[in-house]
Structures are given as structure tokens and as C-alpha cells.
Nucleic acid binder design. Structure first.
Lengths: 335, 335
DNA sequence: AAATATGGTGGAATCGTTTCCATGAACGGT
DNA sequence: ACCGTTCATGGAAACGATTCCACCATATTT
């Protein structure tokens, strides 16, 4: 009775059992050239011994861990969950395992996780960067294949491809829709780091000739609490805003709750649009008008970029789409 | 300019630079015994060369990959996302990477992923088992440290510890609450594989002397579509049910949508309770009464079990709690 | 028929670590 | 003074794969 003491069957066992050398076994198993007869003998022996090659040996020899690393701010956020799902779906079709890390949008934690990744010799990483781009220097120098998803680092890292949603277009249609309903005082509830979206928002306003007020873009940290505080603060401080655009679903959730708490009716008192369509947007009362983000596609494409060798585009931009539900109405002054 | 051609600094480089043998470096770095002076020299050399040990070499030697594997049915489901978050939080404090796989509740995909895990020589796995327990035989024989989360396999694998929520208690309080409101025809919308919850549900009914009708427990597959079909079917087929309990948040979502579509008012026409509290439950209209599940804790505890050596309990049961909101009302016949 | 290409094959080196074991120095007890 | 312990130390052997290279037997060319 040796319990788990039975040694794993190795390539050597297979070689011996098939009466060939280890090199031949390796070749057969990884599609190299071999005579038909040898191939068959090796395959038979492998099957007979229930041989499964060990990734450990292979990785060491190749000096790289297979698989891909994935760094997201918060796996609990449906957007990133869908993104992760896309990555996992693509990786599965390549048979590659995915190692997930949660950064909490904290550059320090991000660096820590990056450290773990290099220690593991992960040479393919997909990340939603939280910190500034410099954190990625050591990784890039180590020759790791990095792709950013949903946003670029700031300051940007030029060599890293990115898969993004078309924030510019999304913000534009949303702002056009709102101004079309008569709104002029439109606020943007942003998470720190959403400078792209903020820029797109103000650009869209400017293009329509609506005066932009800096005070109407409000920033929150990534947590639900911070989001709620920002939303409530905005609604209280500025009774003149009649429409709010939120930079993500966590902020949208916060806006709904804050409005409800402060007895601000949606869409009667304020119209609400949120970036990112999530399952609950439809269940909400009222159902939320959203700028749908192709989160799953973003993940999938990023994974493709990182897994498929060959030259890679510097940027992939995926369309986002305004989904009109019932959270926007014509402008009515709040007081 | 050799690009990424610069060789990684190895333990050998450190040894040479510190003027000691590799064995000594290894010992110093992994907390073995060494003289104070040597220790210092080694540490200095390691720092000077910016040495980071490679997990590859270590893993091969130890014949096991560090880190833990995590298998969940659907990372997009907020419950499993929270569970994963708990696992990740715990693993982070141990500095261990987590490899995530999505089974889609499909035994075949599960087996496939298990295969990947053994190939990687993962020796610690947390799983929400989808298939029957036999799929885990090869893993256990390989000496892998497995912990089940949220549910056990069926047929059960006795040697595997499990971290579970207290379904029995949750179902009991929910059913008591509903019968207290006068409901007698209570349906259960279950996902396939939720036999524990179904059993708890019927047991709770029986304990209260309410006749149980087999036809009132309806099964759906894991997808949103299947959930919707089951919910709509139930509401149409049985106009006499006045209360519905759903086995998870996906089914709850489906029930809300189906009710809305069929113009069945909640809670006027049917009362609704759902297993698992999710952020949108509060945003829903009406806010949903739920049986809160400690998803994050389940993940955390499971990770502790798998990471901390020492003897492990066969089962950990975490409390679940009825959170009353506004989706239940007194019984009123639907026609 | 001799010289040269071709293609399958196995031995051995290699990847970067841990760990076993032998060595030698220092030290305390008799 | 001698011997047995203890302790730090370095060399070398694993771990399990890939891959370079040399080798030999054919097939092809001159």
C-alpha cells in the first residue's frame, strides 16, 4: 500500500514500453516527424500506460509557463466578470489555463500581482491597467506579451496593444439623445481613471454647443460606498442637473439608490443613462437606458491577440450601442 | 541590443556573485539555516542582481505547481463571482496564484478542465462540482487536495471536504415566512443539481403540515433562457400558485422577467423569494426578499481549507439569512 | 558503383530549482 | 589530548520534458 506514492508515469516509461527513445516519444506526441509504425507503437504505449505529459517539465525546458494571466479590478463587477468570461472562452479553445488576479484598481496590488506573474514566468498577460504605465516596464522587459483591455495605462505604454470599446461614439450618442430631450445640465459620474470617457463626454457636449461645466463631472473611487457618496453628493449639491450619465454599472447602481433615497424620481426629475448594460438594468425600476459595452467580446478579442502569434494591431475598437429603455424623459426643471 | 535575449538571472548567478554554493543560496532564500554573515552576503547579492526565483524550477523539483485551481459553473453569475472573489482574497494572503476554469455546469467540460489541472500538476483545487463524483476519482488518486464549495458532488465523494451554506435553515425560514403570510401553494424553481435545496424545501413544507406537490418543483438548466422558460411555464401552467421560491439569482431574475411579461404582479399576485442576495435585488421593483448566501465567505473558507495544511473538517456549514424586502405579501387567490 | 542527399532515430544536454549527502571546522565533554 | 556532536557548507543528483546533434540506413544523383 503506497497510497499516493505511485510515481507518475513519465515520458521515459512510455519510451521504454514502446521500445524507442524518449526523443522519439516527445516528437510523436508533439507532432514531429516519425514513421507510421513508430508513431503507432508510441501512441499505443502512451494509451496503455495512461500517460499524461507534465506541464512542469515542458515549462521549465521552454522557460515559460503556458497559459495566460488576467488582471481585473473587481471580478464581482458584472462588466469585468463578462470580460473574464470572454477571455476564458477563448483560452479554453486553445486549451490554455487562465490565472486570474484582482487588483482592486490599486496600483500597489497590481504591482504585487505582476510580480507573481513574472515569478511564474507567465509570458502572456491581459490586464485592465489600474496604475500608471511604468509598473509594466519590468514585465515588458522580461519579454511578456501584454494586452490591455477596456482601457490603456496612463501614461500610456505605446508597445502594448489594447482592446477597447468605442467610448467616444457611446458618449456621443448618449449626449445627443439627452440634448435631444432638451437637457442642458448633464452631469457625468465617473470612476477615477475613466479619463477617456470623460474626455469623450465633454467633447460630445462641446460639439453640440452645450457649455461644459467642470463641476458637473464628479469622480469616485472604485468602491460601492464611494460611488454612492459621489452620486448622493451630486444630486444634493446640484438640483439644477436634469440628466446624469454614469461611467459604469457600479456608479449606475449607486445613482439609482441615491436618487431613490433622496426622493429624486427617474426619469421625471432626472434622466439617467449608464455605461454598460447589465442583466439587472432591465429589472430596475425604471428599466435603465444604457450604453451597452461588449465586455465579453473585449475579453475574447484580447485573448485572441495574446494567444495567436503573428503581428498584432496596436488597437482594436469595438462598437458600443445605446439601448433605450425607460430612464430618460424630457427635461423638466427640478424646482 | 539583444532585446529580450538577456538571460534571466538564476540562483547560480547569485551563488557566484556571493561567493557561495547554490545550495546555500537556496537555503538562505527559503529560510533554512545559515550563518549570519553568509545570509547577509547572499541577500545582498540577490538584491544587487535583482534576482527573482523562478517558480518553474521549483515546481518541477517539488513535482507540483503552487497555486490553486478554481472551477465554477459561470463566472458571470454574481454568486460565483463573489465566491471566486473570496477564494482570490484568501489566496492573495498566501501569495498563491489562482487558476480559474468555467464549467458551464457541464460534466464534460468539467472533466476537460480537470484534465488541464492534472496536466499542470495543480495539487489544490476548489470546485463547485457539476458532474457526478466519479469524475474526481483520477484527481483524488493523483493526490490532489480537493475542496467542494456550495454543493457536494452526487453521488458524493466522501473524502472531499465541502464548504456549504445552510440551505436547510434558509429554506425553512423562507417557507415559514411564506406560510405565515397564508400561502399554501408554494412552488420551487430549481436549477438541476440543487437537490439539497429541493430536499430542504420539501422537508420544510412537510414539517409545517403543508401538502407537497411534486409538480410544484420545477427544474431548469443553468442558462438564462432555460430559467426563463421554466419560470414562464410554471406561472402559466399553475395559476393557483401564490408564492415562488427560486433556487438562485439567475432563476430569480427569470421569475421577475416572466412575471412582468405575463402581467403577474409581485407581490400582489405571487410572492417571490430568491436564494442568494445580489446587488440588484434591492434595485428591483419591487425590491426582492431573499435568502442571503455568504458567497464570499464560502470561497474564503474553502481556500483556507485547501491552503492551510493540517487536518480538515469534513464539512463547514455557513449560515444563510432571510432578508425581507418587498416581494412578499399576504396570500390572495390569483383568480 | 561511388558520392551525396534524406529522414528517422536515440543519447545527452539543458532548463532552475531543491535536497541529499559528504566534508570539514569548531566545540564541548570526558 | 582525543573523540563524538553539531553545524555551516558546497557538489551533485534529482524533477520531466524538449531539442540539438550525431548516427545510420535508405534513396537519389553523378
Amino acid at each position: 500500500m503506497n497510497g499516493s506514492g505511485q510515481r507518475r508515469t513519465t515520458i521515459k516509461d512510455v519510451a521504454e514500453s514502446a521500445g524507442v527513445g524518449v526523443a522519439t516519444v516527445s516528437r510523436v506526441l508533439s507532432g514531429g516527424s516519425a514513421s507510421a509504425e513508430t508513431r503507432e507503437r508510441v501512441l499505443a504505449a502512451a494509451a496503455r500506460l495512461d500517460y499524461h505529459p507534465s506541464a512542469l517539465g515542458r515549462n521549465l525546458r521552454r522557460r515559460r509557463t503556458g497559459g495566460v494571466g488576467l488582471l481585473v479590478p473587481d471580478i464581482t463587477d458584472n462588466f469585468y466578470a463578462r470580460l473574464a468570461d470572454g477571455v476564458l472562452a477563448c483560452a479554453r479553445s486553445y486549451g490554455e489555463p487562465v490565472t486570474v488576479g484582482v487588483t482592486g484598481d490599486d496600483p500597489e496590488r497590481e504591482s504585487e500581482l505582476i510580480g507573481t506573474l513574472i515569478e511564474q514566468s507567465m509570458d502572456r498577460v491581459i490586464a485592465v491597467p489600474s496604475g500608471d504605465g511604468d509598473a509594466w516596464d519590468p514585465v515588458l522587459r522580461a519579454g511578456v506579451n501584454v494586452v490591455f483591455a477596456t482601457r490603456r495605462a496612463e501614461p500610456d505604454v505605446p508597445d502594448v496593444p489594447a482592446v477597447l470599446a468605442d467610448d467616444r461614439e457611446g458618449a456621443r450618442t448618449a449626449v445627443e439623445y439627452l440634448t435631444g430631450l432638451g437637457h442642458r445640465k448633464i452631469a457625468f459620474l465617473a470612476r477615477r481613471g475613466q479619463s477617456r470617457r470623460v474626455a469623450a463626454f465633454t467633447a460630445a457636449l462641446a460639439a453640440l454647443g452645450v457649455p461644459v461645466e467642470d463641476e458637473l463631472v464628479v469622480h469616485a473611487r472604485a468602491s460601492r460606498d464611494s460611488a454612492y457618496a459621489a452620486a448622493a453628493g451630486l444630486l444634493q449639491r446640484r438640483p439644477d442637473v436634469t440628466a446624469v450619465l454614469t461611467g459604469g454599472n457600479i456608479l449606475g447602481e449607486a445613482a439609482v439608490l441615491a436618487a431613490r433615497e433622496l426622493d429624486v424620481r427617474v426619469p421625471r426629475d432626472v434622466s439617467l443613462i449608464m455605461f454598460d448594460d447589465v442583466p439587472w438594468a432591465e429589472l430596475c425600476s425604471p428599466p435603465l437606458t444604457v450604453i451597452a459595452q461588449p465586455a465579453q467580446d473585449i475579453g475574447y478579442r484580447a485573448a485572441e491577440l495574446v494567444l495567436r502569434q503573428g503581428r498584432r494591431p496596436r488597437e482594436v475598437v469595438l462598437p458600443s450601442e445605446l439601448v433605450v429603455r425607460a430612464s430618460c424623459g424630457p427635461r423638466r426643471p427640478r424646482r
